[in-house]
Design a protein around this nucleic acid. Structure first.
Lengths: 205, 205
DNA sequence: ATAAAATTTAACCAAATGGTTAAAACCCCG
DNA sequence: CGGGGTTTTAACCATTTGGTTAAATTTTAT
């Protein structure tokens, strides 16, 4: 059992352990025994708290998705100017993911396993994302002549890609560029400013 | 058995089937029975051709990695001017991945499962990537004053992120933006020009 | 035609895995 | 102290899964 868990309640410890294992190995790669071990308990007690693997997985997945998605929507749906939105998105998103570096790969993975099922689950009831507002905002700026002509979808893809992908490709980048953990963190910290600057340079007239 | 496979040799059909299943479900999610079914044969024959799951998986993974990595290196290591390299990379990479949309997620996934093992395997013997040359080239352009001051590592990350990520987030983008298969292909086709233009706009003085 | 190779059938095995159970031990609160 | 919820122990079960085997059948090349 890892140190950080000793004081927490058993249920909390199970959830923390399950998150770690599921996020690391995915649904099919995770073993209930691994989760029990990680939580410092036995399998019987694990099932005493959670009926089965699927139910536990769904809790973890939903929590992970809730950590990643609603924040995007809130920023994109706000009434800030375009450039400020871009800056805020990078800032907040990189902060979240720096603390949970494996979340994006995990979530995207499981979504790819069954897009209809998981995406319906994710925006069930609450914050279904409304990219329309953000896309229209870009369109307006283009027509105003504030920024260069660009298909808003490409701009959105560029923003999200540059923000998220480095975390998914982390081991690859690290091995190929000889980057330490500390250096990687520092790079990601820089990207909070670097990406908005890059984008603004690319689109402003 | 899918139509495209009827004429191919059994071994080829197994490899095609295995690629499809492994790439879709990952090592832990893939079932030997699924591969046999997909290849239109039975499990006994599958093991008649391939000793075990690990050996088969490694062939598929190596083939997938070989499809993705060496081409990057060749472009980055060439003697073309910077802007041409960027254009060529986007062009060729998007072409490859359009025909194999699940490859990047698959490879990145398995690399994350065991970075040391898989990355050692990938650059075993042959094309270990040499990003140094590309990074130095960027540095030279910066010093020459041709492009704005930028950390080459960020530029490299931006380029690779924008090129690859949209394929990994495909279902997410499709659901959220209401994009059909045809529209997605068209968007990716556009990105062959869009990304280089975007980058060049961002960095040229 | 015949031998060799490829393929199917079908049964089987062992290990891994998700899940259950019942009894005992532990712990905390009234 | 006593009882209710918690946790352990340890055995057990059913299913899934990777892998094997042997015999029968089909295909292919000589």
């Amino acid at each position: 059992m890892s140190k950080a868990q000793k004081d927490k309640s058993t249920e909390e410890r199970i959830l923390t352990a399950a998150k770690k294992i599921f996020v690391l190995k995915g649904m099919s790669g995770a073993r209930m025994q691994d989760i029990a071990d990680e939580a410092g308990i036995n399998k019987a007690l694990l099932h005493y708290y959670f009926k089965n693997k699927e139910q536990l997985f769904e809790m973890i997945f939903m929590e992970a998705a809730a950590q990643l998605f609603p924040k995007i929507n809130k920023i994109f749906d706000s009434d800030q100017p375009l450039f400020e939105k871009i800056e805020r998105f990078c800032e907040e998103y990189i902060s979240i993911v720096t603390e949970n570096p494996f979340l994006p790969l995990f979530v995207i993975n499981e979504i790819n396993q069954d897009p209809d099922y998981f995406l319906k689950k994710v925006w069930a009831g609450k914050s279904k994302p409304n990219p329309a507002k953000f896309l229209e905002q870009i369109d307006r700026e283009v027509k105003k002549g504030t920024i260069k002509k660009i298909n808003p979808v490409h701009l959105l893809m560029n923003l999200i890609s540059m923000t998220i992908f480095p975390f998914m490709g982390k081991p690859m980048f690290q091995k190929n560029l000889g980057i330490s953990e500390a250096q990687f963190r520092q790079l990601m910290e820089q990207r909070k400013k670097e990406i908005p600057a890059f984008i603004i340079d690319a689109i402003k007239k």
